[in-house]
């Protein structure tokens, strides 16, 4: 498996091959879900940590060998994007349920909510997603940072290494990204 993903990563990151990119994205999206299910099954927890998942997906798909940096950076960016998709898909489903959908077993899940630090309500996540899409069109670099950090759970040090941008710059970018998104989400600030 690592082999053909490697080829996909190379095709996608090197020549801007759109088909390869789409194939890879789907692959990563599926793999994240598979890994998440497996972790859920073996951990006994109702929630998962996205940081762990993203890293696990990397090992699983790209193999444990060190890749050259460009390929790694590309892969993590893609995985963070896939994670964003999964989280937002879920938030959308859940928001629908709340608006009079079926009375699923949300309650039981909510019982574990006290161990989830910082989880955003579904509708806030959706608004964040929209704000992020807007930011993407204005300043793609900031949007990418938010994907890597918030959805991908990567730390500043790791992102710095991947993108060869100094932590100082990243911290400043992070602050800027947060402010822009915050303004989008709270227009009355």
């Amino acid at each position: 498996m690592a082999g053909d993903v490697t080829a996909l990563i190379e095709a996608a990151s090197g020549g801007g091959d759109a088909c390869a990119l789409q194939a890879l994205f789907e692959r990563v999206y599926d793999e994240l879900k598979v890994l998440a299910r497996r972790q859920l099954a073996s951990s006994g927890s109702s929630t998962l940590n996205t940081t762990a998942l993203v890293h696990e997906a990397y090992v699983k798909l790209a193999g444990s060998r060190e890749r050259e940096l460009h390929g790694r950076a590309h892969f993590f960016a893609l995985t963070a994007k896939a994670m964003r998709q999964i989280v937002i898909d879920h938030a959308r489903a859940r928001a629908t349920e709340k608006r009079g959908g079926h009375p699923a077993n949300i309650l039981e899940l909510d019982a574990a909510a006290d161990v989830i630090a910082g989880e955003m309500p579904a509708d806030e996540l959706l608004r964040l997603d929209r704000a992020l899409t807007l930011l993407e069109s204005e300043e793609p670099r900031l949007a990418k940072l938010v994907e890597l950090r918030f959805f991908g759970g990567l730390g500043i040090a790791e992102i710095s290494l991947l993108q060869a941008i100094s932590p100082r710059t990243l911290n400043r970018d992070w602050r800027r990204a947060k402010a822009h998104l915050y303004v989008h989400m709270h227009p009355d600030v």
């Binding site: 998962l48 949300i106 989830i116 947060k178 915050y182």
Partner: peptide
Amino acid sequence: ADASAGDFLEQPPALVAAAVS
């Protein structure tokens, strides 16, 4: 916004079981 952002986005979203299973 910078001053009020505080913890905003500082905690990654926890992926809830229902999202994947």
